[in-house]
Nucleic acid binder design. Structure first.
Lengths: 255, 255
DNA sequence: GAATACATTTCGTTAATGTCGAATATGCGA
DNA sequence: TCGCATATTCGACATTAACGAAATGTATTC
C-alpha cells in the first residue's frame, strides 16, 4: 500500500463525508501536518479530483470524479444488460427498480429506474444502501461469503425501529433467502419504504448484483405478480450474462 | 505535485480511456516498470477506485468512483438550483436539456433532463463535450478567459464536416456570443444534432455553468420561443444563485 | 492434457521522493 | 483598519516508494 495514494484516497473519503473541508480540518482528521495535507490536496486538485469551493478556502470533491464514474458505469456489463429488463420490470410493477452490487460493507446502487408515474423523484444511482437493512443487501449477503465477512465485521446500526441489528438473526435468515431466490425488507432502512430483491448471476455462477423493486409500505405486501415479475427480470438478466442455472449457488469469498 | 498521486491519477485517466487494461499495458503507457505500476494499482484497488475485471487479469475503474461522484453532484449548488428550471425548460420546449461546466479543455455535463417523450434515451450526466463544437462550450468560452486558454492550447479536432477547427474563427465569434447571451451549434459535434446554450452566473458575477437545449437538426432552426425559454431558464438559475445582472460579464482566468 | 509463453507478484537494495516544521502570504472577522 | 486564523511556500532530512531480477501464477497453444 503506497502511503501517498492511501492518504489521497482518505482525503477523498473525508470530503465525501463532509462536503466542504479546509486544510486544517483534513489535517486534524488524518493526524498529519497541514503542509503535508496541502501537498496531497493540491496534487489531487491538478487532476480535478478535488476542487476549491468558489470564493472560499475550503475544498470539495472535483468534477473529474463525475467523468470517471460515467465511464465506470458504461464499463459495467451487468448494468448494460440489465437496462431493458429493469425498465420492463418498472413498467410491469409500477414500482421503482434498483440494481445493486456489493461495495465494501454497503450496497452500491449501480442502476435506478424511477417509478413510472410523474411524481418528482431523485435518481439514486451512486447511493450506498445499508447491507443489513435492504432487500438488495440481504440477497447479496446470502450468496456472497466475502460480502458477509465485510458486513459482519462491524456492528449493524439501527436505522428505524424495524432494523435488524442482531447479526445472528440476520445470518439465520440468509439460507432461506438463498434457497427461495429473493429477500424482503419492510421499513428497515427508511420508514414507509419496503423492497423486494432477487439475485443476478453471471456466466461463472457468481452473484454479481441484485435487482429490487421498491414500494411504499402503505401499499401492503407485494402481490405474487410482483414477485414473479422480479424473478423474471433477475433470471433474464442472469441469462443474458451467460448464467446457466437460476437461482444461483452461493459464491465463495472473492479476494 | 506528489509523484505517486500524479501517477495514480494518470492510471485512472488511462483506464477511463481504455476501459480494461493489464499491468503491462499501463506500464507501457506510463513508461514505468510493471512492479511499480502494480503497487499503484493495488493501492487504488484497496480503496475501490480500481477493480479487477471478473475472472480476467485486467483492471478497470472501480465502484468507489460512482459513490464519490454522486456526492460530488449533490454538493454542486448550481445543479441543485437548476433542477426545477431545467425540468421546466424541457417541458416548455419538448427538448432535451443539458447543464454544462468547464472541465480542463472540455465541457462536463453536470445535469441532463431527457427529452419529454417516451423515446429511449441515455442519461448523459458525466459526459464530456468538445468545447469548440458545442453550444455549451462556446458560451463558456465567451465568458471564461481561463477556459479559453485551456481550449486554445491544443488544436481543435474535427468531429463532423461542420466542426469549426480554426481557433481564430471560433475566437472571433465569442464577443458576439457574450453580448447576445447565447450560442448556437448545428451538426458541429454530432451529425443531425443541434443545440442552443445560454450562460449561468453566480453571486460574484462569474460564469459557473451554461444551460443548453438539444434538438434534431432536421427540425430546422429553433423558433424564438425556444430561445426565450432558454434565456428565462438561464436567468432564473442565475438569479437563484444570487447573480444581480444577466447576461453576465466576462470572467477573468481563475487559478 | 501438457508445455510454453506471458502476465503478475514478491523481494531486497538504493537513492529519490515525499514528509515535516518554520516562515510567509492571504483571507476573514471585528 | 487591525488582528487572528487560516492557507501556502520553502528547504533539509529521513523515510519511502521505485526499481530490477527472480518466482509464482495464469492463459493459450498444440
Amino acid at each position: 500500500m503506497i502511503q501517498a495514494i492511501d492518504r489521497a484516497a482518505k482525503v477523498l473519503e473525508l470530503l465525501q463525508g463532509s462536503r466542504h473541508l479546509g486544510i486544517t480540518d483534513l489535517a486534524a482528521a488524518l493526524q498529519l501536518p497541514p503542509s503535508t495535507v496541502h501537498g496531497i490536496v493540491s496534487s489531487l486538485r491538478e487532476h480535478g479530483l478535488v476542487a476549491k469551493e468558489r470564493g472560499g478556502q475550503r475544498y470539495m470533491l472535483g468534477p473529474t470524479l463525475l467523468k470517471l464514474s460515467s465511464v465506470y458505469l458504461d464499463s459495467l456489463d451487468v448494468r448494460a444488460r440489465s437496462m431493458r429488463w429493469t425498465q420492463e420490470l418498472a413498467r410491469r410493477t409500477g414500482m421503482a427498480v434498483r440494481l445493486g452490487a456489493p461495495h465494501f460493507a454497503e450496497v452500491l446502487v449501480i442502476h435506478h429506474v424511477l417509478r413510472p408515474d410523474d411524481s418528482p423523484q431523485m435518481l439514486e444511482t451512486g447511493a450506498a444502501l445499508p447491507a443489513h437493512a435492504s432487500a438488495l443487501g440481504k440477497v447479496l449477503l446470502a450468496h456472497d461469503l466475502g460480502f458477509q465477512r465485510a458486513v459482519f465485521a462491524e456492528t449493524l446500526p439501527s436505522l428505524t425501529g424495524e432494523t435488524v441489528t442482531d447479526a445472528a438473526v440476520l445470518a439465520g435468515a440468509l439460507p432461506a433467502i438463498a434457497e427461495h431466490g429473493f429477500a424482503t425488507e419492510v421499513d428497515e432502512a427508511v420508514l414507509g419504504e419496503s423492497s423486494l430483491a432477487s439475485p443476478v448471476a453471471d456466466a461463472r455462477g457468481d452473484i454479481v448484483a441484485a435487482v429490487a423493486v421498491v414500494f411504499p409500505t402503505a401499499d401492503g405486501p407485494a402481490p405474487d405478480a410482483v414477485l414473479h415479475a422480479l424473478r423474471d427480470a433477475a433470471r433474464n438478466i442472469s441469462r443474458e450474462l451467460g448464467a446457466s442455472t437460476w437461482p444461483p449457488r452461493i459464491a465463495p469469498a472473492d479476494d
